Amino acid sequence: MFTSQGPTLRELAVQALTSVERGYDLLAPKFDETPFRTPVRMLDAVEEALAEHGGSFGSGLDLCCGTGAALPLLRRLCRDRVTGVDLSAGMLRQAALSLPEGADLVRADALALPEALTASYDLAVSFGAFGHFLPTQRPALFSGVHRALRPGGVFAFPIGAPIPPTSPLWWAVAGFDAAMRVRNAVWRPPFVMYYRSFPWGPVRAELDAAGFTVGTVPLEHFGRRPDGTPRWRLVLARKDRRAPAGDPPGGL
């Protein structure tokens, strides 16, 4: 799980007792040596699906980009500007060490994206970050992505099939979430990270409410469950190509 160059148990404990922003600042130099980094297998599967179902894009946005694992993917898929956004200055410093040519980095809260990013992108992606947002925050998150996309733009992210309660993994993530809820009840500042707070039904309804047309495609790299359903899907949420009436040309 962790390489010998990864964080120690003490370092992880210190991180968990700070805020999300400060925690990732501390973890950033060793983040890529942890299992928290998006696996290359997932990045490859998403890139293949986007190339097949979306083709080439203009500009790309990586929301909560961390150390920049997905920026090379965006650079290959997008013809124009590629931007990584993250709240943690430490993570962005790490991303800058291997920043692809033609990519830039912006430090910003995903819940309050800068006005300069409005209607600027044709593709937005995000990997492994949604557990950092409470369910009550998701409408603002999705609305912000919708504003950042041009008409016809796509918001894409992978989502796994529900874990059955018979699986040991279900109990592991449920135990982690319970421990985090206790930690946040008794310790400040809170560290928001929950693995079971992103159910597909409510998420799809919230994407619809934000103005997206939502579909999914299977990520066949990860196979199928015994009932034949995909273990992982790629969500493709598309912004309507028609700009709302009264908007200035080229913007929202």
Rank of each mutant, 00 (worst) to 15 (best):
residue 2 F to H: 01
residue 2 F to R: 11
residue 2 F to N: 02
residue 2 F to W: 05
residue 4 S to N: 11
residue 5 Q to S: 09
residue 7 P to Y: 09
residue 7 P to M: 04
residue 7 P to Q: 08
residue 9 L to C: 02
residue 13 A to F: 01
residue 13 A to D: 15
residue 14 V to G: 00
residue 14 V to N: 04
residue 15 Q to C: 11
residue 19 S to Y: 11
residue 22 R to H: 14
residue 25 D to R: 03
residue 28 A to L: 08
residue 28 A to F: 05
residue 30 K to V: 10
residue 32 D to C: 00
residue 32 D to R: 09
residue 33 E to F: 13
residue 35 P to E: 11
residue 38 T to P: 02
residue 41 R to L: 13
residue 45 A to F: 11
residue 46 V to R: 09
residue 46 V to L: 02
residue 46 V to H: 04
residue 47 E to A: 12
residue 49 A to G: 09
residue 50 L to T: 10
residue 51 A to L: 14
residue 51 A to M: 07
residue 52 E to T: 15
residue 52 E to V: 06
residue 54 G to N: 03
residue 55 G to K: 10
residue 56 S to C: 05
residue 59 S to Q: 01
residue 61 L to N: 05
residue 63 L to V: 15
residue 63 L to H: 06
residue 66 G to N: 08
residue 72 P to R: 10
residue 73 L to S: 00
residue 75 R to C: 07
residue 75 R to G: 02
residue 77 L to R: 12
residue 77 L to T: 12
residue 80 D to Q: 13
residue 80 D to C: 01
residue 81 R to N: 05
residue 82 V to L: 04
residue 82 V to G: 02
residue 86 D to M: 11
residue 86 D to G: 09
residue 87 L to P: 13
residue 92 L to W: 08
residue 92 L to S: 05
residue 95 A to D: 10
residue 95 A to H: 05
residue 96 A to E: 15
residue 99 L to G: 07
residue 100 P to E: 13
residue 103 A to F: 07
residue 111 L to Q: 07
residue 113 L to E: 06
residue 114 P to S: 12
residue 118 T to F: 06
residue 127 F to S: 03
residue 127 F to E: 07
residue 128 G to K: 08
residue 128 G to N: 14
residue 134 L to D: 13
residue 135 P to G: 05
residue 140 A to F: 07
residue 143 S to F: 00
residue 143 S to I: 03
residue 146 H to V: 06
residue 146 H to N: 12
residue 147 R to F: 09
residue 151 P to V: 10
residue 152 G to H: 06
residue 152 G to M: 10
residue 153 G to Y: 07
residue 154 V to P: 02
residue 155 F to L: 13
residue 156 A to R: 03
residue 157 F to S: 08
residue 159 I to H: 14
residue 160 G to F: 10
residue 161 A to W: 08
residue 162 P to T: 12
residue 165 P to V: 09
residue 166 T to N: 00
residue 168 P to D: 11
residue 168 P to W: 14
residue 171 W to Q: 13
residue 173 V to Q: 14
residue 178 A to V: 05
residue 179 A to N: 00
residue 180 M to S: 09
residue 184 N to D: 12
residue 187 W to E: 06
residue 188 R to V: 00
residue 188 R to L: 10
residue 189 P to N: 04
residue 193 M to N: 15
residue 195 Y to D: 04
residue 196 R to L: 15
residue 197 S to T: 15
residue 198 F to I: 07
residue 199 P to F: 06
residue 201 G to E: 14
residue 201 G to F: 04
residue 202 P to A: 10
residue 203 V to F: 04
residue 203 V to N: 01
residue 205 A to T: 11
residue 208 D to V: 02
residue 211 G to T: 08
residue 211 G to A: 02
residue 212 F to K: 03
residue 213 T to A: 13
residue 217 V to L: 07
residue 220 E to Y: 02
residue 221 H to D: 14
residue 221 H to I: 00
residue 222 F to D: 04
residue 223 G to F: 10
residue 223 G to I: 10
residue 224 R to F: 11
residue 225 R to T: 11
residue 226 P to E: 08
residue 229 T to N: 03
residue 231 R to G: 01
residue 231 R to V: 08
residue 233 R to A: 01
residue 234 L to P: 05
residue 241 R to K: 06
residue 241 R to P: 14
residue 244 P to D: 11
residue 244 P to C: 12
residue 244 P to S: 13
residue 244 P to E: 12
residue 247 D to N: 05
residue 249 P to L: 12
residue 251 G to A: 15
residue 252 L to G: 07
